[in-house]
Amino acid sequence: MDDLVREWSAQLLDSGNVAALVAGVLSLLLVLSRNTWLLLRNVVTIAHEGGHAVVALLSGRKLNGIRLHSDTSGLTVSTGKPTGPGMVFTLLAGYPAVSLLGLGGAWLVTVDLAHVMLWACIALLAAMLLAIRNAYGVLSIVLTGGVIFGVSWFATPAWQALCCALFSWFLLFGGLRPIAELRRKRSGGRAPNSDADQLARLTGLPAGIWLALWFLIGLAAILTGGTWLLLMPQV
């Protein structure tokens, strides 16, 4: 059995297109499955809250802290002007951040820079750890960073590329599901203070417009990043 697994793995890694397709299908199943999504959604929340935090800092706001919760929700608190472009862009950034990180990862994989993606993720998680303000958040960051470090340190370059392709696909698909979940919550009146609703109050544009914008960004990221990954050369 071990010989068969090694032979299958070698054949898979020898074909970049097939490896990318397998990684994409597996990622989609992980996102669609309720059991795996309940656990792996924590990774999506990390990316989401990281997006809020980065844009808050870039827009001149003061980052007070980030909290990650066991129900996979999160909260990024920043202080500054309560209205204006800085606040709008900070609220806008969370949902697209997940898809755009997946898109960036897809590009790095296709240009044979998977190792750069791994170490960039570790660096970003280390920086984010400094802003975490609760124990579950620390645990989430440390565990996620530990898995990525393990891949970067112990996996061969071929397996690093395959793992990064899997991670990129997961972020691309995982960027869309929370938007659909938010839409369902809002239709049931269970998310009155969502990012979309806060943006609606700040800009006067309906929350549905922001949901549609996030969905289109995520869809464009999947089409672009997916094309890059499916054209991935031999790993």
Rank of each mutant, 00 (worst) to 15 (best):
E181L: 11
R201P: 04
L211H: 06
G189S: 14
L223A: 13
L171R: 00
L58S: 10
W228R: 07
L68E: 08
S33E: 05
W228I: 02
A196P: 15
T72E: 06
L63P: 14
S78P: 12
D195A: 10
G86L: 04
S194L: 09
L39C: 12
D2L: 15
N17D: 13
A10K: 10
C164W: 04
V111D: 01
D14G: 15
F149N: 05
A53Y: 07
L68A: 09
I222P: 11
G150L: 02
L118D: 03
M232E: 10
L13M: 08
A10N: 09
S59Q: 11
G50S: 06
T224G: 00
R190A: 13
N17F: 15
W228F: 04
S194A: 07
V88A: 11
F154R: 15
M87S: 14
A93Y: 04
L176F: 08
F149I: 08
N17C: 14
T203G: 00
A220P: 15
S187L: 15
L75E: 07
L4N: 15
F173Q: 02
L103Q: 06
R133V: 06
G51T: 00
S15P: 02
G105M: 12
L57N: 00
A196K: 06
P233T: 11
L32M: 07
G16W: 15
M232V: 10
W214E: 11
I66R: 04
T110R: 09
A161N: 10
C164Y: 03
T144V: 08
T110A: 14
S15Q: 08
L39G: 13
S33Q: 09
N193Q: 13
N64Q: 11
F149L: 13
V55A: 03
L40K: 00
W210H: 02
L91R: 10
A56F: 09
S99C: 08
A47V: 05
